[in-house]
């Protein structure tokens, strides 16, 4: 049945609906939207609170009865945040770690997903099974062993310690492998006939076809680097290698013993902005990538 006939029939069905049905429909719609609205408010409120707090004076912030809109807007908090916390350096450190680990882990993910999806070699299934099994181990357990390893290797307080342990993500390999496997084998054979090497086929055909997944992997990886807290705190919490999350934590607490919360909030707002923008621009890919895998992000 063609699309137009379907819509015509739907239109007719709607006309036929009785008044009772209409009331039920309107009520259920209202209910749904009311629910969504409340949920959205719950989610958005912390953001709102972060922004108004960042614009208050310290005195206003400390009031027993909080105000919902700052009496005096303190744009100066943002400038202060930037200098106090040395945000410039923190940004650069985080960006460096984020970019390097994203690029390297994309290369690793793509190559291993290709091998597991397309190449024939001995022990492929066993190896892949072993990799998947590591996903069962909670991440916190890795923290301990990784800490010991990093220490033994003498990588403490280096960027290497921040990048290397998370380069291989079984989850992303699995995600991309599934994506690659959906690409029909005939395309591979056709590309062989057309005179391509494996690597060129991967570059020209598979990567473009799996682009949505690769974009979501990139975003998730960047977010991971941006948000990581515990691991950087353990292995590289010195000034030269401090990441943004730890920087924020440390910068505002040790001045004169009193934390300047509005300035801290301003810093948090600055730091969240890039991720927020990335999410707004690319949310289509994030959602499609994660929902296709059917599991967590």
């Amino acid at each position: 049945m063609s699309k137009s006939t379907t819509t015509v029939m739907q239109a007719r069905d709607i006309q036929k609906m009785s008044v009772g049905q209409k009331i039920v429909r309107v009520l259920s719609k209202t209910g749904t939207y009311a629910f969504l609205l409340i949920m959205a408010l719950i989610v958005l409120f912390p953001f709102y609170w972060m922004i108004i707090s960042s614009l208050k004076t310290l005195a206003e912030y400390r009031q027993a009865i909080p105000t919902f809109w700052p009496r005096q807007i303190m744009w100066g908090n943002y400038a202060e945040a930037f200098t106090t916390a040395n945000l410039g350096d923190l940004f650069m450190n985080t960006l460096y770690v984020g970019l390097v680990s994203t690029v390297l882990s994309l290369v690793i993910t793509v190559l291993s997903a290709f091998a597991f999806a397309r190449l024939e070699f001995k022990g492929k299934e066993t190896l892949f099974g072993a990799l998947l099994a590591t996903m069962m181990i909670p991440g916190e357990l890795f923290t301990i062993t990784n800490y010991i390893t990093i220490n033994e290797l003498g990588w403490m307080h280096t960027f290497t310690a921040l990048i290397v342990p998370f380069l291989v993500s079984v989850f992303y390999i699995y995600l991309l492998r599934q994506n690659f496997m959906q690409i029909p084998n005939e395309l591979y054979l056709a590309a062989k006939v057309d005179g391509t090497s494996d690597i060129k086929y991967l570059w020209k055909v598979m990567i473009p076809l799996a682009l949505p997944t690769l974009i979501s992997v990139t975003i998730l990886k960047m977010m991971g680097a941006w948000n990581s807290y515990i691991w950087p705190k353990l292995v590289a919490n010195d000034d030269a290698h401090q990441m943004i999350t730890n920087g924020l934590r440390n910068a505002f607490t040790d001045t004169s013993g009193q934390a300047n919360y509005p300035v801290q909030m301003a810093a948090v707002a600055i730091v969240s902005a890039p991720l927020f923008l990335v999410f707004l621009c690319l949310r289509k890919y994030i959602m499609s990538g994660v929902s296709r895998s059917g599991i967590k992000g």
């Binding site: 029909p184 005939e186 395309l187 054979l189 056709a190 006939v193 055909v205 473009p208 076809l209």
Partner: peptide, 11 residues
């Protein structure tokens, strides 16, 4: 070689 399902590159 022409494949049964044509195997054109969809992108």
């Amino acid at each position: 070689l022409v494949f049964q399902n044509y195997a054109l590159y969809p992108h």
